[in-house]
């Protein structure tokens, strides 16, 4: 970018095109949702740590699964939402800043929860498998997924005009989404073609106890609530920060125009 370039408002979206309402959910719904999320998490802790019986084979370590599985579910849900929102952004008839900001908010949650999934998986793997990390197909795919969307988040932070960034990010999100099954397929082949004794022995997974299944479902419900609540909060933050950035930019441009020595207003030709 050259300094001589006139302020190019055509490339900027301006505050006006931002959604007026920064919330996905009405304030009251959000408050109720926040408290129900907390209650669900407390209930999950109660059932996960004390309510459910220890696993016949894995013992108490299996309790980590009540967090691990829901976290993984949340990550996949978040990335799916990112992809759908990106698609809606790219589709000319539904193109709106709302979808761009929603995709970014959801992807950030997805990355946080993919990281958490990997961490919890390690904490489970150490006592049960005896190792922190195994080159298991699902683990490897999840790790690649983590970096794939980490790259997407970096792309979201690039200094570029908002329209450019939104379009590039939407395309990148869709490419990442298409890549996931390819990665999974290749890693799956890799680990099944060349690994004789797998750590996942089907006989190690006996029929799930009723309370255990309930606790797992409770976990999925609680984490879905966490997702919806945090998505609403994160989306609001995105709208506010975008708004602030636009205003600061407007102010800076106005200052430059005022400083200009020429009597003509610089670079205004609409």
């Amino acid at each position: 970018m050259t300094a001589a370039k006139p302020p190019d408002n055509g490339h900027r979206r301006g505050v006006a095109s931002l959604p007026t309402n920064p919330r996905l959910l009405p304030r009251r719904v959000s408050v109720v949702l926040g408290w129900s999320t907390l209650a669900a998490l407390a209930l999950l802790t109660l059932f996960g740590l004390w309510g459910a019986p220890p696993d016949a084979v894995q013992g108490d370590a299996q309790r980590i699964m009540y967090l691990h599985v829901p976290a993984a579910w949340l990550a996949y849900l978040a990335f799916t939402v990112t992809s759908v929102a990106s698609l809606l952004y790219l589709w000319p008839r539904t193109r709106s800043t709302v979808w761009d900001l929603l995709a970014g908010a959801s992807a950030e949650l997805g990355v946080v929860f993919t990281g958490l999934t990997l961490l919890l998986g390690s904490l489970w793997g150490r006592p049960v498998w005896g190792i922190w990390w195994a080159w298991d197909a699902r683990l490897t795919t999840t790790a690649v997924l983590f970096f794939l969307y980490l790259g997407y988040l970096s792309l979201r932070r690039i200094p570029a005009s908002v329209e450019t960034r939104a379009k590039r990010c939407a395309i990148a999100a869709l490419i990442a989404f298409v890549d996931v099954p390819v990665v999974h397929l290749s890693v799956n082949w890799w680990r099944t073609l060349h690994q004789q004794a797998t750590v996942f022995n089907p006989e190690l997974n006996p029929r799930i106890h009723g309370v255990m299944a309930f606790t797992l479902w409770l976990g999925v419900v609680a984490f879905t609530l966490v997702y919806v609540y945090l998505l609403d909060r994160r989306y609001q933050l995105a709208v506010l920060e975008e708004d602030l950035e636009e205003r600061e930019l407007d102010a800076a441009i106005a200052q430059r125009v005022a400083e200009a020595p020429s009597p003509r207003p610089a670079g205004v030709h609409s």
Binding site: V144, F147, L148, L150, G151, Y152, S154, L155, A172, I175, A176, D179, V182, V183, L185, S186, V187
Partner: peptide
């Protein structure tokens, strides 16, 4: 590199 390397892992 951050964008491309995970994608070409397969």
């Amino acid at each position: 590199p951050l964008l491309l390397l995970p994608v070409v892992a397969p």
